[in-house]
Design a protein around this nucleic acid. Structure first.
Length: 440
RNA sequence: CGGAGUGUAGCGCAGCCUGGUAGCGCACCUGCUUCGGGAGCAGGGGGUCGCAGGUUCGAAUCCUGCCACUCCGACCA
């Protein structure tokens, strides 16, 4: 992509409403624009990151055996009257009426709808287990949206819903998602730590929040340092191995880990002091087993092996991709801007023509641009008339993992400069070597 | 929903108290000079001053109402 033909509205000044670093940087980098309180447009740079996040989320959901679908944003109020939540949900639910004055709502979540879809078609235990997921926009009319897309009213959400014949099956479904989440966040370049979470009125201990560590995170977290070194399950993990998965989850839940709300100071103090980690974190995922809370009132039953009808055991599993983009920025930035993990970077490399209009640099850039494209590398080619300094500042701000700086100075010796955004490391290489280093 | 604020050019702000031709910096356009870490000079474009009433010869400025947005708290992926 040539920057001259892209849409990258960089802001030099920080908008005053942006309080936290991810909000500031996302606005400055031209990733998002606020359209109303808690409602944001994703501009091209932001959309690229969002799509990469979704792609990884999707791949790991698929790997675990979940099946993608898409439910609508607008739902009928009748569905929510069945579960009793239409009255309970409160003002966070955006209620609307269509032209026939039928009560509708913009979905804040989808348990009711997925249960309706399930019960319409699934009648036998033989069709279980089943895990259906979708990635869709949701709306929760928060009293006070803030922090940009980190806590917005409209947000993208991956929701998976599992269906099993009994609690034991549901536990295995839960474990699958647990592993999928560990892998998802690791692939996004983040270290996530599963922490015991509140299960609300349902009770039980089957709920975990996945927290990533970031110095600017909003909640205080306490855990055993060993979590930072636990190996993340490999891509070839066998999701059908019930016992194997159970052991994995046991290990990942064996040590102390809690957010401040659930913090148990005496338990934390039992950890050897050198292994205690007290830090700040951001919640990026939440998994939950809720049994028959919806299947009973909504009559989502299947026939079991013994011929009797049983309500299915369900769980739901959320990841907020839009929040995740902000969380990644919180975790990955420095004074000059964003430092994208390679897996989600909007472009892999920024190619800077330091003297646009100079025949030598123009030709070298055009050649490199073609060479990167031929290797399938996403490159943003800054072919604008801006001065070198402005280009440096911009490419640092938008955080592309690699920078290739092409100027007359280097070219005089047949070299271009390759800079790694994350470390600041630079080296002078021939264009061919630069290509090899970055594209492999 | 309680408390506190702010609305003036794309962004950041001054002007308002004490009414009198709407300003500054950045960004944008033109030209010249520059050109490896957000250039300099000169010229230029862009505003129903959040909206609606009211007071006044005259309102960005004073009064009333409304709307939007932000911050603190409670709530939350």
């Amino acid at each position: 992509m040539r920057l001259s033909r892209f849409f990258l509205p960089i802001l030099r000044d920080t908008p005053k409403d942006a309080e936290i670093v991810s909000h500031r940087l996302m606005l400055r980098a031209g990733m998002i624009r606020q359209e109303a309180a808690g409602i944001y447009a994703f501009l091209p740079l932001g959309m690229r990151v969002l799509q990469k996040v979704c792609k990884i989320v999707r791949e790991e959901q698929d790997r675990s055996g979940a099946v993608e679908m898409l439910m609508p944003t607008i739902q009928s109020a009748d569905l929510w009257r069945e579960s009793g939540r239409y009255e309970d949900y409160g003002k966070e639910m955006l209620r609307i009426q269509d032209r026939h004055e039928r009560d509708m709502l913009y979905g804040p979540t989808n348990e009711e709808m997925i249960t309706e879809i399930f019960r319409a078609s699934v009648k036998s235990y033989k069709q279980l287990p089943l895990n259906l997921y979708h990635i869709q926009w949701k709306f929760r009319d928060e009293v006070r949206p803030r922090f940009g897309v980190y806590r917005s009213r409209e947000f993208l959400m991956k929701d998976a819903y599992s269906f099993d014949i009994d609690a034991a099956g549901a536990k295995h479904s839960y474990n699958k998602m647990f592993v999928a989440y560990l892998r998802t966040f690791a692939r996004l370049g983040l270290r996530s730590i599963p922490m015991q979470a509140d299960t609300g009125p349902i009770g039980g201990d089957l709920s975990h929040e996945f927290i990533i560590l970031a110095s600017t995170g909003e909640s205080e977290v306490f855990c055993h340092k060993d979590y930072l070194e636990f190996p993340v399950p490999e891509a070839d993990v066998n999701f059908d191995d019930v016992g194997g998965l159970e052991k994995l989850i046991e290990k990942w839940t064996s040590l102390y880990a809690a957010t401040s709300e659930k913090h148990d100071a005496p338990a934390f103090d039992k950890i050897p002091e050198a292994r205690r980690l007290s830090a700040r974190g951001i919640e990026v995922g939440h998994i939950f087993y809720f049994g028959t809370k919806y299947s009973e009132p909504m009559k989502a039953t299947v026939t079991g092996p013994d011929g009797t009808m049983k309500p299915v055991h369900m769980g739901s599993y959320g990841i907020g991709p839009t929040r995740l983009v902000a969380a990644i920025v919180e975790a990955c930035h420095d004074d000059n801007g964003i430092v994208w993990p390679e897996a989600v970077a909007p472009f892999h490399v920024g190619l800077l023509n330091l003297k646009q209009g100079d025949s030598g640099t123009d030709a070298a850039c055009e050649q490199l641009y073609r060479d990167f494209a031929a290797k399938g590398i996403d490159v943003l080619y800054d072919d604008t008339d801006d001065r070198a300094g402005a280009k440096f500042a911009t490419v640092d701000l938008i955080g592309l993992p690699w920078q290739v700086l092409v100027g007359p100075k280097g070219l005089a010796e047949g070299k271009v400069e390759v800079k790694r955004r994350s470390t600041g490391e630079r080296e002078m290489l021939t264009p061919a070597d630069a290509l090899k280093k970055i594209a492999g």
